[in-house]
Simulated scan of single mutants.
Amino acid sequence: MTRLSSRQFLVVLEHDDGVERVAVEFESHASNVGEARRFVRQRLVGWGLGKDDAFIDRVVLVLSELVTNAVVHGRTRPPNEKETVGVALAFKRDFALGLVVTDNSYGAPIPRIRPSVGAVRGRGLALVNAESDGWAATPHPEGEGGWGKGVWAFFCCPQTVVVPELLPQPE
């Protein structure tokens, strides 16, 4: 497959027929990053992408970085008020998977050019860029008149396997 632009991925995954979608929200706390990883891994396995597949590991790694960034940088409400981070997947079999993480901040993600060798922060978007087949940030309408952003990551899909209905499915 020729490398697609982020815009091409977006057009297909947002508007094409045959795209399976799922979305969930998590409270904006670092402790929920693991819950987001489990949710995405189970959904990808349910779609037939393989339990221990390197593809799933790439997607989960990118998700982890994006959710962590949303929790750390995307919070707009005072600490005592509830705030959520959204996670959504759009999957078109044998084409691509889109992952979007939404938060309430307008602030566009800014990749660091070169984090220092000893830095423990600042590598997240470089990792997203290296592990995904493209990424983009888009404005995201929120309820109650507010706006936020969505940060997408795109992955060209490997061939899927059919999961027999008789086998137990992840919950």
Rank of each mutant, 00 (worst) to 15 (best):
A30F: 14
N32T: 05
E35C: 12
E35N: 11
A36G: 01
A36D: 05
R38M: 13
R38N: 12
F39T: 09
F39Y: 13
V40Y: 01
V40A: 03
Q42M: 15
Q42L: 14
L44T: 00
L44Y: 06
V45C: 06
W47S: 04
W47A: 03
G48L: 01
L49C: 04
L49H: 02
G50V: 02
G50N: 04
K51I: 13
D52T: 05
D53M: 10
D53I: 04
A54W: 15
A54N: 13
F55Q: 02
F55W: 15
V59W: 03
V59D: 05
V60L: 05
V60D: 00
V60R: 02
S64D: 09
S64V: 10
E65G: 06
E65W: 06
L66E: 01
L66K: 01
V67Y: 02
A70V: 02
A70F: 03
V72A: 08
H73R: 11
H73I: 10
T76V: 11
T76F: 12
T76M: 14
R77D: 14
R77F: 11
P78I: 06
P79M: 11
N80F: 15
E81R: 12
K82G: 15
T84R: 14
T84G: 10
V85N: 03
G86M: 00
V87S: 02
V87H: 01
V87A: 02
A88H: 03
L89H: 00
L89Y: 01
L89K: 00
F91T: 06
F91I: 12
K92G: 07
K92A: 08
F95M: 15
F95T: 09
L97I: 02
L97D: 00
G98F: 00
L99Y: 00
V100D: 01
V101G: 02
D103I: 02
D103K: 04
Y106H: 09
Y106S: 11
P111Y: 06
R112Y: 09
R112V: 15
I113V: 14
I113R: 14
R114V: 15
P115Q: 08
P115M: 14
S116F: 11
S116K: 13
A119E: 13
A119H: 05
A119W: 07
V120P: 15
V120G: 09
L127H: 08
E131W: 14
E131K: 10
D133L: 04
D133R: 00
G134W: 00
W135C: 08
A136C: 10
A136D: 09
A136Q: 09
A137L: 05
A137H: 07
P139W: 08
H140G: 10
P141Y: 03
P141I: 03
G143I: 13
G145N: 06
G146Y: 14
G146K: 10
G146V: 13
G146S: 15
G150D: 03
A153G: 05
F154L: 06
F155I: 11
F155Y: 08
C156S: 09
C156G: 12
C156K: 09
P158T: 02
Q159P: 08
Q159R: 12
T160D: 08
T160R: 05
V162L: 13
